[in-house]
Write a protein that binds this DNA or RNA. Sequence first.
DNA 1: ATAACTGCAAAGCATTTGCAATCTT
DNA 2: AAGATTGCAAATGCTTTGCAGTTAT
Lengths: 161, 161
Amino acid sequence: MSITDTEVEDALASFEAFLRRKRLKMTAQRRTMIRTALKHVGHFTAEDLYRRLTEAGAAVSMATVYRGLTLLEEAKLLEGHDFDGTRRYERLVDREHHDHMICLDCQRVLEFQDDDIESLQEKAAKRHGFDLADHRLVLYVRCPEGDQPERCHRAESMRTA
Amino acid sequence: MSITDTEVEDALASFEAFLRRKRLKMTAQRRTMIRTALKHVGHFTAEDLYRRLTEAGAAVSMATVYRGLTLLEEAKLLEGHDFDGTRRYERLVDREHHDHMICLDCQRVLEFQDDDIESLQEKAAKRHGFDLADHRLVLYVRCPEGDQPERCHRAESMRTA
DNA sequence: ATAACTGCAAAGCATTTGCAATCTT
DNA sequence: AAGATTGCAAATGCTTTGCAGTTAT
């Protein structure tokens, strides 16, 4: 679930390579931001990251957080989702691809994988003459009829939205 | 592609039933809004609908358009999507379910269907102990390497985002 | 040196909301 | 009559941007 320090440092190195490629610069703010962002378990918003940075005593402005998140996404260290009006990010480093299931009863977000669906998506794109670049699949689900909403909360790979 | 007048009037009747069920009221604004919205081909934003209403001489405020779109979605006459920051709607009446493919090269939106993917989604939800209520699948694609971007524009079931 | 980065505050954009007047039922 | 709806303008919430000063390469 959690990321190791070595993985964080490796990611940092790969981000530096990304910056060099784009002729951009590494700064103290970006370094702190990456370390903090990658250590975040589950989904987080710009606001969440900003709060953590602030609480840790790091002086990074909200504007810089937004600009940094965009870069981290371009560098493929983070992946962004638009589940609702607020963009949510999650670490991509050292995590397998997955889609999301959102329970309309308890609002929780569950992660799942389905290789068959993945390969059919590839085929669907091809069938229409395109190359699949990326995709977003969200399943809106409900706790089975008659079940207590808590049932939902017990699910294993659960994350807070 | 287009909807018939009869279908529009039927939809209107079903919306009135929906309102009655919820103890809400039918108004001139809502009537005009539905007729205009349902006749819209492809995807449209609140702004698009507002413009059409205004151009047709109907006096409906933006606030009412937003409030109405929410109701039309609840009544399942429209379906909303969050492809980007602006919500886009499409007529649900008399249309089969489909997902979307968005070309990152030419920005166009293509509709597609895949029954196998649909049924696997159902199974995935079940496997995790939930009932599938709804879903959103968006494939981000690219015109094949070496192709002119126009290739993309020629695709049949294309819609403007 | 040069170009990129940062913080700040202001601006932007889509959408929502409080309220008084006005319609539906 | 009671409650829902409307338009307006103000407010909201998230995100972006212009600018002047600072910093990395």
